[in-house]
Amino acid sequence: MKQLLSIQDLCFAYDKEIILDHVNAEIMDGDFVGVIGSNGTGKSTLIRLLLGQLRPVSGKITILGTPVGQFREWPKIGYVPQVGGDAHREFPATAKEIVTLSEFSDIRFMRMPRRRHIDKAVQALKAVEMGDYQNRQLSALSGGQFQRVMIAKALVNEPKLLILDEPTSGIDAHSKKILFRLLKNLNQQGITILMVTHDIKETGQYVNRFLELKDQTICEVRIGEC
């Protein structure tokens, strides 16, 4: 199996507080990995490091064989951020408008989206079973539906790797189940998934393995042991 993401001896600290200390991990093509750990163990920090939003103190992260600092093919990485608060959901755009925005690299700077971009956005929404809601405003969607739109936004560029930061926070049990099934389907279609989650029990039947952040380091945990 091809290696998609590798973390080697990664160290990170906020001022003098060490968050990650010599962390090593790798994600292979086709993996579905759950990242678990208590609050404050550095799960979201790890995601921000993977996305190049934070610079490590030492160590190396490579995505698709390229060091993260030099990586430029971000559309190949779909990212679904943690939704904290209602700021995003109150934005007055429709699901289709938001998904289309994600095609920026294809539409290009200072150009308007063409018919094919809009059609692609609709296809992505259909892939997450949100085709009927394409013209619905974000504020009119439920928490689970909103997250599916965010996944469609990440999928529209046909990414190799999908990174999700607590995608089920604040949504009901039924919507969680729908979301996890959807992610499993996407994984079976060949998309590698790295998902930060607190729902260890519910995700156990969907992910291939768990990586647990604990005591500033990361270790692999077998499903059923956590």
Binding site: W74, P75, I77, Y79, P81, L101, S102, F104, S105, K153
Partner: peptide, 8 residues
């Protein structure tokens, strides 16, 4: 953040 990641 997402805009930056998409290349804006």
């Amino acid at each position: 953040n997402s805009a930056r990641l998409s290349g804006v």
